[in-house]
């Protein structure tokens, strides 16, 4: 890893991280604040009245305790979308944007192997995801302890967020691979943003149920099953491992492609 590059890129990540942390803070505190038996009943009434719409945004389950409530209202949309956006923007900026714009020449015209450049950029992306999710976990635990002391089990929260981390590690892998492969930012974004978004849409369609439930097999989001993780089900654990393995495959593949490709810079 190259320290100078790592520091520069982490500094660039910081702005985006602060922005997303602020948005997540807003949503997480609002949702946890909303947790109270009466509002839960109201939201549940929404689910009864318009089950398709609520299911589409991942708010299908009738929530019981605080964590289940959070799983319904945070882990189906907010905590999937915002870290995913971070992955898309940052991954594209770490490699493809430099190649497309030509500034990559300063990185390659130096006694630093391409493998090292790509590895450094990968570390920056993964660190960003990690920081965002560690912050989210701490925030959730802090706000829950403040508003509803003793309601949120740390062990269960950690299990769910470990799954969330695996999910975003995998999504980051897709974005990073696209960024390494395409020298044109438009293509890098088309694949790096398009594929995760498409899978997310599939997930929404599948959540609605009906004849299209099979479509969930086309979406990696199916592998992230928070309710299963809380219940410590084997299937959910397998999904988590699958996501991790997928990520562990995608990042090195991206690095390998970047090492071998021609750079017209």
């Amino acid at each position: 890893m190259n320290k100078a590059l790592f520091l520069r890129e982490m500094k660039k990540s910081a702005k985006l991280l602060l922005l997303f942390a602020a948005v997540i803070t807003l949503y997480v505190s609002c949702i946890i604040y909303l947790y109270d038996p009466e509002t839960t009943e109201m939201l549940n009434r929404f689910v009864e009245v318009m089950p398709e719409l609520m299911a589409a945004v991942g708010m299908g389950t009738i929530a019981g305790d605080l964590l289940e409530f959070m799983v319904s209202y945070l882990y189906g949309f907010i905590l999937l979308i915002f870290p995913m956006l971070f992955c898309i923007l940052r991954a594209n900026g770490l490699i493809a944007k430099y190649v497309d714009g030509g500034a990559m020449l300063w990185l390659t015209a130096a006694p630093v192997k391409r493998r090292k450049i790509a590895f450094t950029q990968m570390t920056v992306l993964v660190c960003g995801i990690l920081l965002l999710l560690i912050y989210t976990t701490a925030l959730e635990f802090f706000i829950a302890s403040l508003l509803f002391p003793g309601e949120l089990m740390l062990r269960e929260l950690l299990l769910v967020n470990l799954g969330l981390l695996a999910m975003h590690f995998f999504l980051g892998g897709i974005c990073f691979f696209a960024s390494c492969t395409f020298s044109d930012t438009r293509l890098s974004l088309a694949v790096g943003a398009g594929l995760p978004t498409l899978m997310f849409v599939f997930q929404m369609i599948a959540n609605v149920g009906g004849n299209l439930r099979w479509i969930r097999f086309l979406s990696a989001f199916t592998l992230f099953d928070p309710t299963g993780l809380i219940a410590e089900k084997t299937g959910a654990a397998m999904g988590l491992i699958g996501l991790l393995l997928g990520g562990l495959l995608l990042y090195p593949a991206g690095i390998a492609v970047f090492c071998k490709k021609d750079l017209a810079i």
Binding site: R8, G101, G102, A103, L105, W106, A109, A110, P111, V112, I265
Partner: peptide, 14 residues
């Protein structure tokens, strides 16, 4: 690259 100094034909910076 350890021994080379390079001025590119098309300059793109950070």
């Amino acid at each position: 690259q350890k021994q080379v100094g390079y001025i590119p034909g098309e300059i793109a910076f950070f």
